[in-house]
Design a protein around this nucleic acid. Structure first.
Lengths: 352, 352
DNA sequence: GCAGCAGGTTGGAACGTTACAGGTTTTTCG
DNA sequence: CGAAAAACCTGTAACGTTCCAACCTGCTGC
C-alpha cells in the first residue's frame, strides 16, 4: 500500500543539466544558454529545453556555477547581536537590498566577541563570499585586516574601522546632538553609558561627540559608565552599586546619554526599578531610534539613524566594489542623524 | 611610492590545494587528508603541509568540497520577519545551534508573503541546502510541499504544516492557558487579536485554544480581530474604528488575547493612545514572551515559549534527518508553555 | 556553383575539491 | 633473509557548471 512507502524519506538526487540535455535532445551547452537566457538559441529549441526543465524540475546548482565562475553572489553579513532590535532591523534591510541586487545574504552572529567574529569571517571566506558587510566590528582591526585585505571587498555599515569602505552616520555629530539636547535642557551632570559588548569605534566616536559637547559648554568632567544590563530584564539586580552611586549619590548625574537605545532603555528600566522618575529625576537620551523607542510607554528621546538608507548605501557600495564599478581607495560615506524628542528628557530637578 | 599602490583594490586569487601541495612537495591528496585531519599521514609530512598552508594562507573552498561531496552544510532558515523580536531571538538561537553542529545558516526573510517565501525557498534549493528550517510558514502548503518533498529535509520550528517534522509548543494549550487566565480573573468578553501577516497554522491553533477555553466557560461568542498595527508606532491612527468599537463600544470587550506579543504590545499601545488603562479598563495577554514584554513599563502577561529549547530541538531534528539518524514518517515534537503573569492583566472593571 | 557568412549547436577543458584504487616504501615477524 | 603487513603517499576520476573554440548548416550574392 502507498501508505507504507514513507514518502518523507526518499530523497532523490536533483536532476542535472545533463539530464535536461538528453531529455530535450540537445547538448548541455545549449541548456546552459537557455537557462542563462543567452541569445543564439532558436525559439524551437528554447521551447523544447524549457519544457524539459519543467518536466524534470531542474534547478541549476549554484555551487557548481560559482565554482567555475570563480565568484559567488553570496554576501557575508557580520552582525553583533541579532536579538538587538537595531541589528535586527538593519539585518532585515540589508537582506532586502542585497536580494534586490541579486545577492544572497549569509549572516554571522558574533555576540560582540572578537573571537567568534574572526571565526565567522573565516567561515564566510571559506564560502568565497563576494563581499563582507560588517554591521558591527569589534575593532580587532589588525588581525581582521590581515585576513581580509586583498581577499574580498568589505564595507563597515553603521560601524567603523580605519580601513575598508565605511557607510555610517556621523557618530560624533550624533553624540554632540544628543548631549547638547540635554545641556540645553539645563543638565550639568550628564553620564555617558554604554554596553561593554557593543563598545566599538562607533561608540568611541559617540563618546567623543559627547565630550566635545560638554567641553563646549565648559562642563567637566565627562562621566563614563560601562554597564552590562542583566539579560533577563525581569531580574535587574536591584542594587547595581555603580549605577546607584552615579545616579543617586552625592553630586549625582541628572541625565544620561546612552551609546545606543538598548543601553538607554536598560537604564530606563533600572531607573523604573529603583524608583527614579524619568524624566523628572533622570533624563535619558538614546541612539538609534529602534521601533520600541517610539512606544508611548517607552517614549525615548534618541538620535535616529536612517536605517534603510544606510543599508541601501552600504549594499550599493559593496556591490559596486564587487562589480569593479567603484575603484580607488576606501571611501567613507556619512549620512545625517536627527534627534527625535520624546518623553524621556526634560529639565533637571530644581536646584541641580 | 607604496602609497600609490591602492592596496584596497588588488584582489588576488586565493591559493588552492594544488599550490599548497607543490609548496609542501606532496600530492594534493595528502594535503586534503591533512586538512580534513584524516589519519595515515606521517607527522613530518603533516607538519610540512601545515606550514605550507600557514605560509600561503590557504583556506579550503567549501563550494568545491560540497560539489564533490554532493551535500552542503548550509541550513536554510525561512523567517517571517527578522524585525519581530520573537523571530530575531529564534533566528539567533537557531544560528547558534546550527553552528554548533557544523552547519551554516542562510536566512531568508519573507515578510509573511507566500510569494517571497516561495522565491526564498527556491534560492535555498539552488544552493542545495542540506535542509530547511521554517520559522514561519504561510501555509501555502501544497505548492511548497510539491517543491520540497523528496528534495530536502524540512522542519517547521515554532510553526506548523501538515507534513514534515514539526517542533513547536502546544499552541492549543497555550491559547487555552492565556484565555483561562483572563476568564479566571473574571472576564466575560474577551477578544482574540492577531496580525494578518502572521496568521498561520500556529495562529489557528492558538485561536482554537482560545475558543475551547471560552466554550468550557460557556462564554459565547468568540471575537476575532485581525489588525495591522501601523508600522510606525508613533503614528497609531488614533481612530482605528474597528478597535475602538470592540473595546469602547456597547457590550465592549474587557480583555484581549494577542496571538503573539507584537500584536499584544501594539494593542497596548493603542490602548495607551486612546486612554484606555491597562489593566483597569482592558486586560491584555500575549504569546511568546519576547524580552521586551518583561520591561517594567510594558509588563505584559504572556504565554512563554522556551525559545532556546525549541531551537535546539529543531536543529537536532533536522540534523538527524540530514544525517539519516532519524528515519520514518514526519514527527511532531511539542514542548511545554508557561504563563508569565505581569501587570497587563487584572479583574474586569466593576459591573462588566 | 561556390566562397563567405551568420545563426545555431556542440564537445572538451576548466573550476577546486574528495574518493578511492592503486603504488611505494618501511616495518614486522617467522 | 624474505615475504607479508602496515604505513604512507599518489594519480585519476568524478561533481555540475560555464566558457570558448570549433563545427555544422543553410543561405546570400556574385
Amino acid at each position: 500500500m502507498a501508505a507504507h512507502q514513507d514518502p518523507a524519506q526518499r530523497v532523490r538526487r536533483p536532476p542535472t543539466i545533463l539530464d535536461v540535455a538528453s531529455q530535450a535532445g540537445v547538448s548541455k551547452s545549449t541548456v546552459s544558454n537557455v537557462v542563462r537566457g543567452l541569445p543564439g538559441v532558436s525559439d524551437a529549441t528554447r521551447r523544447r529545453v524549457r519544457t524539459a526543465i519543467e518536466q524534470l524540475g531542474y534547478r541549476p546548482n549554484v555551487l557548481a556555477r560559482q565554482l567555475v565562475q570563480q565568484r559567488t553572489s553570496i554576501l557575508g553579513v557580520v552582525v553583533g547581536d541579532l536579538a538587538n532590535p537595531f541589528f535586527a532591523e538593519m539585518a532585515k534591510s540589508v537582506e532586502r537590498h542585497a536580494a534586490a541586487r541579486g545577492y544572497t545574504a549569509m549572516f554571522c552572529n558574533t555576540e560582540g566577541d572578537s573571537q567568534s567574529e574572526l571565526a565567522g569571517v573565516e567561515t564566510l571566506l571559506e564560502y568565497r563570499v563576494a563581499g563582507i558587510v560588517f554591521l558591527a566590528f569589534s575593532g580587532e582591526s589588525r588581525t581582521m585586516q590581515e585576513t581580509l585585505e586583498h581577499q574580498v571587498p568589505v564595507v563597515f555599515l553603521s560601524c567603523k574601522a580605519d580601513w575598508g569602505d565605511v557607510v555610517s552616520v556621523d557618530d560624533v555629530r550624533g553624540g554632540r546632538l544628543g548631549t547638547s539636547h540635554l545641556i540645553t535642557a539645563g543638565h550639568r551632570r550628564i553620564a555617558y553609558i554604554s554596553i561593554p559588548e557593543l563598545e566599538d569605534q562607533s561608540d568611541i566616536a559617540r563618546w567623543q561627540g559627547y565630550c566635545e559637547a560638554l567641553e563646549q559648554a565648559r562642563i567637566e568632567p565627562p562621566i563614563r559608565i560601562s554597564w552590562s544590563p542583566p539579560s533577563d530584564h525581569a531580574l535587574v539586580s536591584g542594587v547595581d552599586r555603580k549605577l546607584l552611586e552615579v545616579f543617586t549619590g552625592p553630586d549625582r548625574a541628572t541625565a544620561a546619554f546612552g551609546s545606543n537605545d538598548v543601553a538607554a532603555i536598560s537604564l530606563q528600566e533600572f531607573a523604573d526599578r529603583v524608583k527614579l522618575r524619568v524624566p523628572q529625576d533622570l533624563s535619558i537620551v538614546g541612539f538609534d531610534d529602534v521601533p520600541m523607542a517610539g512606544l508611548a510607554r517607552i517614549g525615548l528621546t534618541t538620535v535616529a539613524q536612517p536605517r534603510d538608507e544606510l543599508a541601501k548605501l552600504g549594499i550599493a557600495t559593496i556591490a559596486d566594489r564587487i562589480e569593479r564599478k567603484l575603484k580607488g581607495p576606501p571611501r567613507t560615506t556619512l549620512v545625517g542623524v536627527s534627534l527625535v524628542t520624546r518623553q524621556s528628557t526634560g529639565p533637571p530637578p530644581e536646584g541641580l
